[in-house]
Design a protein around this nucleic acid. Structure first.
Length: 426
RNA sequence: GGAGAGGUGCCGGAGUCUGGUUGAUCGGGCUUCCCUGCUAAGGAAGUGACGGGGCAACUCGUCCGUGGGUUCAAAUCCCACCCUCUCCGCCA
């Protein structure tokens, strides 16, 4: 959520920044207008309240001095003021609710360096590593769903029997490799990140802090009976770890990581990418996350990206980095970069990580602040996160990239320690 | 799920029965200063967040789990909900 004070003092700049995303200013202007109204109401309300307090003290004094009969007049005046105050307070609250619900829907401002663009097609490729379109043999040009089924390690037919379409099931060495990927990702980041195993069913407040609610409720699984939501990513619980807290600057950056299942309804994607492991309602992912000061954030963004890219590199997969343009930026994102892995069997670039800087947008929703060392007062922290490794698409790219002419798949060496001795799948 | 106890400031812990100058006694912690060769001990002062108004000094308001209600006035009385603890039940 944007800082209301910034909207108040710098409306034009905010409007221009939103325009870069292709966002209309209607809601913004409405917030600006409501804010002025609410502040006028506050002034009047506070004045009435202050007077009530003074009158109450007067009554108390009169009672104490045994002159209770003289208290009738101030009591009556106070009663009257109380009604005025209540009406003003209710009106201010109504306005406040409208402001909040608008603010929750207005997206974040893009970082000045975010490239212009209207959509995905305008996202500039920043870097390409290990990709040679002519360097793949026929044995690698087989989609992973065929490879997986042939090797008996992917059984989506039975997954559908168990849970319906758009679920996947890995078996044998395939399941082992899925877990090994998580272990590798955690171990590689344990140098700087505290491992957390958070709840993956969360309250509406938690899902609102990161931006999924209220606007994207259809994308998440909701357990109505208990009013809990299945997390779409560990970003959701991790961002709420310090919700409502004030951190010491010395504690920043606070780096957390978590391996969790991720649940997505894929409401807008029905019928898309239905084969294999490209898109499913449930998958495992290792997320890396940080609370930081504004000054620490740019370097952290680079570090998160380097860590995500480093893992893909380690697994011997061709990949590229794409910067998300203003028009394609997610609602909460201030700046964002995607890592895409090349899958030769599908002949597609698959998004396997999204590394993002949210500035104070999520932290203001979550009310996470810090006390600047030496300074007074508090500041809203910045949050950043990225997928260290999202299992399914990496798993798919491994099957396609490391398939050998004889149809077997070589397990990348960094996974061996976690594979119970399995070094190839045949 | 049932029964009971409880949620107060950075922490501990009063105040709630008997509503009233209580943003809140007291202790600890922390910060600054004084004393001290150093340490320990001691002395003094300070010590929250949020919102509004004001060029500013400053000032007004809100916050005692959350949300309502009663009252001139609520940490204190009433209602609902949430959370924690103990016991029982259930359970990996």
């Amino acid at each position: 959520m944007l800082d209301i004070r910034r909207i108040r003092s710098d409306l034009d700049a905010v409007r221009d920044a939103l325009a870069r995303r292709g966002e209309s200013a209607a809601e913004l202007d409405r917030v600006h207008e409501l804010d002025a109204r609410q502040r006028r109401l506050f002034v009047d309300r506070d004045e009435a309240r202050s007077r009530v307090r003074a009158l109450s003290k007067e009554v108390a004094t009169l009672n104490r001095e045994g002159r209770a009969e003289e208290a009738a007049a101030p009591q009556e005046e106070s009663r009257c003021l109380g009604r005025t105050e209540k009406r003003l307070a209710e009106e201010a609250a109504t306005v406040g609710e409208e402001i909040r619900s608008l603010l929750l829907r207005i997206p974040n401002l893009p970082h000045p360096e975010v490239p212009d663009g209207d959509g995905e097609a305008d996202n500039p490729v920043v870097e390409v590593v290990g990709y040679d379109p002519d360097g793949y043999g026929a044995h690698q040009r087989v989609p992973h769903w065929e490879v997986g089924e042939a090797l008996g390690i992917l059984d989506n037919g039975r997954a559908a029997k168990i849970a319906g379409s758009m679920f996947t099931m890995q078996r044998g060495a395939g399941a082992t490799m899925a877990r090994a990927l998580c272990q590798l990702a955690l171990d590689r980041n344990a140098d700087a990140f505290e491992e957390v195993r958070p709840p993956t069913l969360v309250t509406s407040a938690t899902l609102t802090a990161t931006g999924q609610l209220p606007k994207f409720a259809d994308d998440a699984y909701h357990i109505e009976r208990d009013d809990l939501w299945c997390v779409p990513t560990a970003e959701v619980p991790l961002t709420s770890v310090a919700r409502g807290e004030i951190l010491d600057e010395a504690a920043l950056p606070m780096r957390l990581m978590a391996c969790t299942p991720c649940y997505r309804r894929e409401a807008g994607a029905a019928g898309r990418d239905t084969r294999g492991m490209l898109r499913s309602h449930e998958f495992d992912k290792v997320e890396i996350f940080a609370y930081a000061t504004p000054e620490q954030s740019p370097a952290l963004l680079e570090d998160l990206l380097a860590r995500a890219v480093g893992l893909i590199d380690l697994l011997g997969l061709a990949h590229r980095v794409v910067e998300i343009c203003a028009g394609d930026l997610g609602q909460s994102h201030h700046r964002s970069l995607d890592v895409e892995v090349y899958a030769p069997g599908c002949d597609r670039w698959l998004e396997v990580s999204s590394v993002s800087w949210f500035a104070d947008y999520q932290a203001r929703r979550a009310d996470v602040r810090y006390r600047p060392a030496g300074g007074k007062g508090t500041e809203v922290v910045h949050t950043l996160n990225g997928s260290a490794l999202a299992v399914p698409r990496v798993w798919a790219a491994i099957l396609e990239t490391h398939r050998r002419p004889d149809g077997s798949v070589a397990v990348p060496e960094p996974l061996h320690p976690y594979m119970r001795g399995i070094t190839e799948i045949r």
